[in-house]
Amino acid sequence: MFNVLWGTIKIQMKNSWARPMFRFTLIASPMLNTVLIYEMFRHSGQSDAASYIILGSGLMGLWSSICFSSIGDIARDRYMGVLPFLFTSPSNYNVLIVAKTIGNTLLASLTLVVSWLTAGLLFRLTLVVPHPIVFLGALVVTIIGFVAISIPISYLMLLSRKTGLYMNVLDIPVTLLCGFVFPLNVLPQWTQPISQALVPTWSTRLLHLALQPTIDWVALRTTMTWNAGLILLYGGLTVVFWHAIQLRVRRNATLEVSE
C-alpha cells in the first residue's frame, strides 16, 4: 500500500505542477491576494492584520488549490478517461484519493510561503511566530483538516458529471465562511452554524491562536477538540459515502464523460 500511496502522491504532484492553472493558483494568486487583503486592512487599525493578510491569502490559495485540484481531479480524470482505470484497479480507490489530496495539499502549502514572501518583500510585513512549535502543530492540523474536508467532497463528485460547476460554487463561499481573510463576527449570525461545521474555520482559528504572544491554552484546547471532532466526522462521512458511492457508480455509470 505504501508504494501505491507514494507513487500516487508523486504522480499527482507532477500532474498538478504541469498544469498552468495550478501554478497560477499556487504562485500568482496568493501574491495578488496578499496585495488585495493588505489594501483591505491598511487603514483598519486591526492589531492582528498581518496574520489575516499573510495567513488569509495563504489559506485562500491553499483552499483554491484543493478545490481546483483535489476536487477538480475527479473531473480531469474523467475527461482524460483514466477514472475507470483508477476505479477498477486492484488498489483501493480510497487510498488513491487520499494520496492525490495529500500530494496536492503538500504542494499547495507553498501558497503560505508565497504569501509570507510577498507581504515581506512588498509591505515589509512579517508574521511574528512567538511559539514556533505550537504554530507548526497548528499548521499540521490545518493541512490534515483541509485533506479531511476535500476527500468526502471528492467522493460526491464521483456521482455527478457536473464536477466543475460544484467546484466553482465551493471556492469563494468556503473562503468567506471560514474566516480566512476577516474575523467571522463580521458575518451575519445565521452563517455561524455553517461556519462552525466546516473544519477550515477551526483550523484558521487554531493558527490565529498559535500566533498570540500569550497562548490561551483553554481556547487552544477547545479549538483543537473541534478540529479533531470534525476531522473524525469527515472521516466517518468518507467511509459512509464510499460504501454508498461505489455501488451507485457501478449502477448509474457516472465515471465517464456523457456522450
Partner: peptide, 23 residues
Amino acid sequence: GELGLYRRLSARDNLIYFGSLYK
C-alpha cells in the same frame, strides 16, 4: 481512442504508475 492516459506525463511514468496500482 486517445483517452485513458495522463497526457502530461511521459510514457514510462504512465506505465509505472498504472502498474503500481496492480501492486
